[in-house]
Design a protein around this nucleic acid. Structure first.
Lengths: 197, 197
DNA sequence: TTGTGTATATTCACTAGTCGGTATACTTAG
DNA sequence: CTAAGTATACCGACTAGTGAATATACACAA
């Protein structure tokens, strides 16, 4: 039985991450992942029982890095909580301009697997999105906001709207527009004194 | 040269629509589409020069039906313009409960083709999304709303957020939450007298 | 009315290559 | 000797796309 922390396994997941994110899970063969990792397909199948398994491992590995990136954007935002939320979108707009940016790996995988709702990779995506929503709700809780968890959900919807529509239009103006909408939603739930101050 | 309005061509597009929407473009072979249409693959290739061509035709054929469906939901909404917007989300939430619902075909196709931004099917999706945004902006224009086109864009972002996140969570509560957020955004741009009245 | 030419439309059989996955054997470390 | 890990070589099924033949329908001439 393979080790869960094997360096070989990590090499495989890293290679899968590069290819799956760049091309999509359906357009990348197991052979291609093995070659990118510098080993044979049989070795890959020693560490993962199936391609579906590998896809799930790819997404599980993206959970914490993605959360930390978003949290960094939020925390670096200057001003009130509405501005910190808007900062997420400003930095996301910048990220979408990178030529290697291909949207959200979790959402793209879920879209490819829409006919298999119980797929382990979809579940990994659900865990990640819930983690993010929970984290944002907690952040909003300390700022005199009504129903911070409901607000977090609304912001999550705008962020995921950006991810998907950007794959169609490739126009960062949509991300900026979403940021302004998010700030409006934040202020709608802030106390009057806070909005005016 | 094949006719653009050929009934055979329509049969092929209808078959492709059923299969591509149900399974995703990457998981459906040209052979499968031909069999669903009740003819041979060679005939299909007489009417379409490639699979990519067929995918684009599939999405072009969904533009008007999808627009009409959304417009119907909006127009049937009772109350002010904020309520009519919210009605879109209420009806969308109902639609997502149908077992055959698999998200937005335009967004799912764009997600599958994220590494090919100039693909004709992605362009077809961009046309459709722009058509919808323009239609919504026009509807909002007659209702004493500031910057109706900016508001339309914000609502589009929430709708597409619903489409994508629903593929992950399969929980219509997200669509209802998006509807409330959209109504909030509408009221933020309505004149005071209108909000109070 | 019959025969011929032509464009449209369709089929069968096939190519060359890729897919996920595996049987078997080898190497190396404990 | 044993077990973990890796390699070569292969499997049957499927992939998008094509070559060559054929069916169908209609126009027009004898």
């Amino acid at each position: 039985m393979p080790e869960a922390q094997s360096p070989t396994r990590k090499r495989i997941v890293d290679a899968a991450t590069r290819l799956f994110y760049a091309e999509g899970i359906g357009r990348v063969s197991v052979d291609a992942v093995a070659e990118e990792a510098g080993l044979t397909k049989r070795t890959l199948y020693y560490h993962f029982k199936s391609k579906d398994d590998l896809i799930a491992a790819y997404l599980d590995g993206r959970d914490q890095p993605n959360l930390k990136r978003m949290a960094g954007w939020f925390e670096a935002g200057q001003g009130g909580v509405d501005k910190k939320v808007e900062a997420i979108f400003t930095d996301l707009a910048r990220a979408t301009r990178h030529p290697k940016w291909k949207g959200c790996g979790f959402l793209r995988t879920a879209a490819e697997l829409a006919s298999m709702p119980g797929h382990p990779a979809v579940k990994a995506g659900a865990r990640h999105k819930s983690n993010f929503e929970t984290w944002l709700g907690t952040e909003l809780s300390g700022h005199d906001i009504e129903e911070p968890r409901a607000l977090a959900r609304e912001i999550v919807l705008l962020i995921d709207g950006c991810f998907s529509i950007m794959l169609i239009h490739r126009n960062p103006d949509y991300v900026e527009a979403a940021g302004r909408a998010a700030a409006t939603l934040v202020r709608a739930r802030m106390s009057v004194s806070q909005v005016q101050g």
